[in-house]
Simulated scan of single mutants.
Amino acid sequence: MTPQAIKVACSNCNLRELCMPMGLSGDDLGKLDDLVALRRKIKRGTPLFSNGDKFTAFYAIRTGFFKTCVATEDGRDQVTGFQMAGEIMGLDGIVGDRHTCDAIALEDAEVCVMPYERIEDLSREVPALQTHVHKIMSREIVREHGVMLLLGSMRAEERLAAFLLNLVQRLHARGFSSSELVLRMTREEIGSYLGLKLETVSRTFSKFADDGIVEVKQRHVRILDTEALRAIVNAPACN
């Protein structure tokens, strides 16, 4: 299939509100249609890009789930984030013209390829695009600060509760249930992201289930008591 045949029109995409600026004119939307070069299909378990690859584009996730990870000095993979449909990947490559992490598909996925050179050129014509890119970068900084807070000051229960609340909130913004989700990542990957051992993640899930907060069936999670999860995250620190 040719790039032209699989090219997606941003103006007709149902994820446009999540990954593109709001309130654009018809002319500006037409220009954004030219921003997306093509779609790429990524098979489960394969990389969208790898650490050290030359940075050429942003990637808007159209379908599927990804994880980003970096290799530690002892050879382990440290998960640094999970990304889903409507989110933008590839910002890590801007600073040094090369990617600094691996982006691995957790299920069969599809992304829209947006060449960075086109983004720079088009930002001069559509100021809202430049503002939107800055917002995306700012959101990543805020997300990293949130992860630092998770790893630096929260107990295991707080970390997992915050993770589940964040995940279901992001999925709900995409039209999914506000209380049910399917975990695309393994317990081990969750532990790597949250700085917890696999056994601790499994034990904490079991405690949440015993307390009637969640119902867990393998990778299917149903949140029975959202307020209880929020209370865990917002619990006052013990002196």
Score class of each variant (00 low, 15 high):
Ser179Gly: 10
Ala103Glu: 08
Leu171Cys: 04
Thr63Phe: 08
Arg39Lys: 14
Phe176His: 13
Leu229Phe: 07
Leu129Tyr: 06
His99Phe: 09
Leu183Cys: 12
Val201His: 04
Pro127Cys: 06
Glu227Arg: 11
Val113Gly: 03
Ser153Asn: 05
Val201Trp: 01
His172Ile: 00
Phe55Tyr: 11
Gly191Arg: 06
Leu181Glu: 09
Arg16Ala: 15
Asp33Arg: 08
Arg118Val: 01
Arg62Ile: 11
Cys10Gly: 00
Thr63Lys: 14
Phe55Val: 05
Glu17Asp: 14
Leu160Arg: 03
Val70Ile: 15
Ile190Arg: 01
Asp210Ala: 13
Met148Asp: 10
Leu160His: 06
Leu18Arg: 10
Lys7His: 15
Ala237Val: 11
Glu73Ser: 13
Ile119Leu: 13
Ser177Leu: 12
Gly45Phe: 10
Ile141Asn: 02
Phe208Gln: 04
Ala156Met: 04
Leu198Cys: 08
Ser138Pro: 00
Gly52Asp: 05
Ile6Asn: 13
Glu227Pro: 00
Thr100His: 09
Ser11His: 02
Gly93Asn: 08
Gly26Ser: 12
Met22Tyr: 09
Phe205Met: 15
Val147Cys: 01
Asp121Leu: 11
His132Tyr: 14
Ala235Arg: 15
Leu181Phe: 12
Ile213Tyr: 05
Ala235Asn: 04
Pro115Val: 10
Arg62Ala: 05
Asn166Met: 10
Glu73Val: 09
